[in-house]
Nucleic acid binder design. Structure first.
Lengths: 137, 137
DNA sequence: GTTCGTGTAACTATAATGGTTACAACGGTG
DNA sequence: CACCGTTGTAACCATTATAGTTACACGAAC
């Protein structure tokens, strides 16, 4: 990865729209995001699986399952599966155990990078959907 | 990106080896990392361009240009170019400006995600190479 | 039963990753 | 000077992720 997928930013966009006006259809959201409706439906499927929203079958239109105050950017980030196994950093895992560095690098980095990842995630957890929608006036 | 490239963790491995024993050759490092020497040379080229190490041409062997106390994980992270234009998060950038959400989402997310990225980077900046090598006993 | 919206499958083009072979250039050593 | 190990790149490849597209079955209201 050069960058974290736009699935995350689009997911925030989707939830913001629904928070502002309930019962948006996927096609309407696709118009605001300016992309293909299938892309929106796929992401909405992930948000649905994460328990953040639900969709009225047949008739269409989505609504939040939690209030915007209770949805954080971290919830959304986790929902759209932008990192593999929740590990932001990939660490090479076949080092030569004969070497003192090779023998220890993996777990040393594992613990160190977990801290950095956690710092980011905790910052995401501080921002709620309602804080964002307040800025869309 | 599903994950940040192993270039970063391999770069830390490389610099750790050089910090422990100066004048490592690329091939020796490749043996410790357990990968192809060209992969190592490519990453060493980036570290060289970033001013972290230099290599004795012809004879071979690398040495640090800064002391391990002065090299942070953030320096290494930046050196290996694992994110595009130093933006960890990619944000969809073609939203419909007719929509109040679409009109504002980009810069609102830009500023918010910059904070999260920064939180991670500042955590990386707190760890030095010397702190890591101390754990390779 | 028509119609609009949803949920998926399948396919595509593009890009990043990580490994590989090949080879020119460099600089001590014999 | 010739040799030889090392470095620096170029070129190529398989694999994976992304993001878009078409197609179509299904649901529910009208």
């Amino acid at each position: 990865m050069k960058q974290i997928s736009t699935r995350f930013s689009i997911a925030v966009h989707i939830l913001s729209l629904i928070a502002v006006s309930s019962n948006c259809t996927g096609d309407f959201i696709a118009g605001s995001v300016n992309t293909n409706p299938v892309v929106i439906r796929r992401i909405m499927g992930m948000l649905k699986k994460a328990g953040l929203l639900d969709v009225r079958a047949g008739v269409g239109g989505a609504f939040l399952l939690k209030s915007p105050e209770q949805i954080t950017l971290l919830d959304i980030y986790r929902a759209v599966n932008v990192t593999k196994e929740d590990q932001l950093f990939r660490i090479h895992d076949d080092s030569n155990v004969q070497c003192p560095v090779g023998r220890n690098i993996e777990w040393v980095l594992q613990s160190e990078l977990k801290e950095a990842q956690s710092a980011m995630e905790q910052r995401l957890a501080q921002t709620t959907l309602s804080q964002l929608t307040a800025r869309f006036k």
